[in-house]
Design a protein around this nucleic acid. Structure first.
Lengths: 340, 340
DNA sequence: TTGAAAGCGTTACCAG
DNA sequence: CTGGTAACGCTTTCAA
């Protein structure tokens, strides 16, 4: 029968008739302990299934080896995959992670941060909620001396490290690809213009057009909100133009799938009549027909880098560092016009 | 300037010239403390931003208010959504969660469990890895007195509570729906026959046929492995039969999307020529064309129930309990034949 | 109404 | 080589 309370050093010491210090030292392989005694102690520890009490350790060192992750949600593939990258690196370094979702709400984000501070996490990796425009709750982390790294949606870059994707460059690359594979008139479907990410990707799109000396037409840019329905609406609008586009770059996965549905409803072929590129993860792009050419975020890698960066901050007092991880163009069926 | 070390009761006590016990009591609203003194103590605590040290508390009570979640992975929507349900309930009860992925590997699963025990989590919610066939590492949890709840892939039901979906019933419902909406010959695409989940869903499918006195044809059942490619392969095989089916039930999302691709490649219309039902989450089903009629797992609810169950076990010593959460039929475009 | 002291499990320092 | 003791922050007796 096991006792309810876990075995402690004291228990082992008593049983062997030695002091607690001796047992502690023996289990850490201190060279000061007699070889024979050491062996006996280790044997008993294994027998009794001794496990060091992490609370005592944390109390002593004030470091629970836990880091907090704060994301808008955990269900979106993008975040889930990043979390996956983070936790794998954390685990490899003997850290556990605690995950909290803001559900895009400012109040929940603030509360989560409070919880993390109360828990005394050693560091935090966070992605801002859409609602958040005031960052004072994050500044508090500086006072509390809790290293923090932001990813994707970032802020206070002078104080915190960050990991992001190359929004402008990736949109530019995507547009270039369309122009180089038979498309002449490329349209852009984005989200709300106030979002940094929208501005940057649109900028990359426009940049690619300028490069090729293609005149910019305002009607070919549809920016309203992010979401499947808006992708559908946007594509319908674009395809109803007197001079409709023969290619669409959708800056988000739901927008892209919405646009795809619209193109089909208009009885147009992809990519023959209208090419389409989105930003998606591997899975979804292959599920649809035709398979969707996409810019793919290196999400797992973003997670890994975020965590590595954080661990460096935890270990030493480094200056904020900013990393950009490029998105990759994965060519599938929806972009290359056959006639090419 | 903040000190590096967080404020402790001792600090407050010294500053006010009272004893630690007094401060402790005042902050817990003990009625023994003078109203005026109590007010002063609370005021200072707020000023100094005092936060109780969780390590000291855990050391004292041996309960860190942390529960461990062990899943095959966190990227699959099914698991992510369940985790979401778990964490929300946990948080509402002042618990934090730590998530670990087995990546379907036995060794990693075992290691994660060890980590949880070492961390002294108060309880565990787990879904078995596909590789796992030996359950001794879970039996150890009984010795360690760590309450555990399984979901979806479960084991040792005499010792542990569980939360599952109604595999047989849901497949039966799906098949019934097909038969009631104009389909005559329903085929089934499943995964490896050794998996419990496959057996159960196939059983439900067959049950629905028997109900309607429809003869069972072995050629209409394709069970090989779970995955997009196998869905594609299976559907191709089925549609090449001398008497092909006019409806397919795919027992998994990737199988369903693979089948959908195959049906289209065969230039058949969905649902006019071949109806299709899958098991998916909301999102994916709407992205494809036509939108996929599906059995939808109530994943978030499964998470919630798992966590509630676990909390009951943590609080008192309840007997194992088994909960079944039904999947819901969500009718979209891929199932109802127009002629009906 | 308040204070002192023990104890939770561990490490580290100082003695022997 | 080994043992005793203080310390980490907090709660909880027991005394005053």
């Amino acid at each position: 029968m096991e006792k309810n309370r876990p075995v402690s050093l004291k228990d082992l010491a008593k049983e062997l008739g030695v002091s607690i210090s001796t047992v502690s030292r023996a289990l850490k392989n201190s060279p000061e302990i007699g070889a024979e005694l050491k062996k006996r102690i280790k044997k008993l520890a294994k027998e009794r299934n001794y496990r060091p009490n992490p609370f005592a350790m944390s109390l002593l060192k004030n470091s629970p080896r836990i880091i907090g992750i704060l994301v808008p949600d955990i269900v979106t593939h993008f975040y889930a995959s990043i979390i996956s990258g983070i936790t794998d690196i954390a685990r490899a370094n003997n850290y556990s992670v605690i995950i909290s979702s803001s559900y895009e709400q400012y109040e929940l984000e603030k509360q989560s941060l409070e919880d993390f501070i109360n828990l005394r996490v050693e560091g935090i990796i966070a992605c801002l909620a859409q609602e958040t425009t005031d960052y004072s709750h994050f500044e508090e982390l500086v006072n509390q001396n809790i290293p923090t790294v932001f990813f994707d949606r970032i802020c206070l870059t002078d104080k915190f490290s960050s990991v992001i994707t190359d929004n402008a460059e990736s949109a530019q690359k995507a547009t270039q690809h369309l122009l180089e594979t038979g498309s002449k008139r490329v349209a852009f479907i984005g989200g709300g213009n106030h979002l940094e990410i929208v501005k940057q990707r649109k900028h990359g799109y426009l940049q690619a057009l300028r490069e090729k000396n293609i005149p910019i037409e305002k009607e070919l840019v549809f920016c309203k909100k992010i979401g499947f329905d808006y992708g559908y609406e946007g594509a319908c609008k674009l395809l109803s133009l007197p001079q409709p586009p023969d290619a669409i770059l959708a800056m988000n996965d739901s927008l892209a799938f919405g646009a795809m549905k619209a193109i089909k409803k208009h009885n147009l072929r992809i990519p023959e009549d209208v090419s389409l590129i989105g930003y998606t993860d591997e899975l979804h792009s292959n599920y649809v027909d035709p398979a969707l050419t996409s810019m793919t975020h290196q999400t797992y890698k973003m997670g890994e880098e975020s965590c590595k960066l954080l661990l460096r901050h935890i270990r030493g007092n480094e200056k904020p560092k900013h990393i950009t991880i490029p998105a990759l163009l994965t060519i599938r069926e929806s972009s290359i016009k056959k006639g090419d």
